[in-house]
C-alpha cells in the first residue's frame, strides 16, 4: 500500500541523505556515532530472518541495504573520517536504551525464542535509538540543515508506517501489536523534533521562495 511504500522510500532517502552529507562534507561532525552503532544493532537483530525466511526480493534487498549501509556509516565514522571525528558531546547514556529495550523485549514478544526476543528487542531499540542524535543536536545547538533533513526523513518513515498499519488492519485483518506500540513510541519521540523542524526549516523555506 501507499503508506508502506512511502515509509520505506523515506527510510531509504534518510540514509542516502546521511551518506551524501558525510561524503560531501568529508566530515561526520554533528552525527551521533552512538545512534549509528545502535542502528547496526537494530538492523542485524531484526533481519536475522534473512537467513531463514524469504518474503520477497524487495524485502531481502531492503534488509541487506539497511544492514550494509548502517555498517558502512559506522566504518566511515570510525575509520575513514576518524581524524576529523571528535565528538566529546556525544555522551548520551546508551546503556539505558539497550537495557530498557532488552527488558521490554523480555516482557513483550510473540514467542519466547531467541529470534523472536531479538526481533522485539530491535523494535524497541529502534524506537529510542535516535535519542543520542537528538541529544547531540540539542547540545551543539546549531545543526547543519542537512542533518535535520536526515532526522526528519528517518522520523517520517515510522510515522508513515502508522497509517499503513491501520490500512492493513482493515484490508488484511492484520494487527501486529508489538510493531504498532513500538512505532507509536518512536513517532512520539520524534514529535518534538518534527515541531521544531516545521517551525525552523519549513517556514524558512517558505519565506525564501522566490
Amino acid at each position: 500500500n501507499l503508506f508502506r511504500i512511502a515509509g520505506d522510500i523515506s527510510h531509504l532517502v534518510s540514509i542516502l541523505i546521511l551518506l551524501q552529507t558525510i561524503e560531501k562534507g568529508k566530515t561526520t561532525s554533528g552525527i551521533s556515532l552512538k545512534t549509528q552503532i545502535l542502528y547496526v544493532v537494530v538492523f542485524v537483530t531484526r533481519y536475522l530472518d534473512l537467513l531463514t525466511t524469504y518474503v520477497s526480493l524487495y524485502n531481502s534487498l531492503m534488509k541487506i541495504f539497511f544492514i550494509a549501509s548502517s555498517v558502512y556509516v559506522v566504518w566511515l565514522m570510525t575509520s575513514k573520517y576518524n581524524k576529523k571525528f571528535k565528538e566529546d558531546q556525544d555522551v548520551f547514556p546508551v546503556k539505558y536504551l539497550v537495557g530498557g529495550s532488552f527488558v521490554m523485549s523480555l516482557l513483550f514478544h510473540y514467542k519466547f525464542t531467541f529470534s523472536e526476543i531479538l526481533w522485539s528487542f530491535s523494535l524497541w531499540l529502534e524506537a529510542v535509538c535516535i535519542l543520542p542524535q537528538l541529544f547531540l543536536l540539542q547540545k551543539t545547538g546549531e545543526a547543519k540543515a542537512i542533518t535535520t533533513h536526515y532526522i526528519f526523513a528517518l522520523g517520517l518513515y515510522r510515522a508513515l508506517y502508522i497509517p499503513n498499519w491501520f490500512y492493513r488492519y482493515y484490508s488484511e485483518n492484520r494487527l501486529d501489536l508489538l510493531s504498532v506500540s513500538a512505532g507509536l513510541l518512536q513517532t512520539t519521540i520524534y514529535s518534538d523534533f518534527f515541531y521544531v523542524y516545521y517551525q525552523k526549516v519549513l517556514k524558512n523555506w517558505g519565506f525564501n521562495l522566490p
Binding site: R4, D49, V55, N59, F66, W119, E172, N173, R174, D176
Partner: peptide
Amino acid sequence: PNSKLKKDEL
C-alpha cells in the same frame, strides 16, 4: 485479528 503474523515489514 490475525495472530499468525508474517513479518514482511522492514
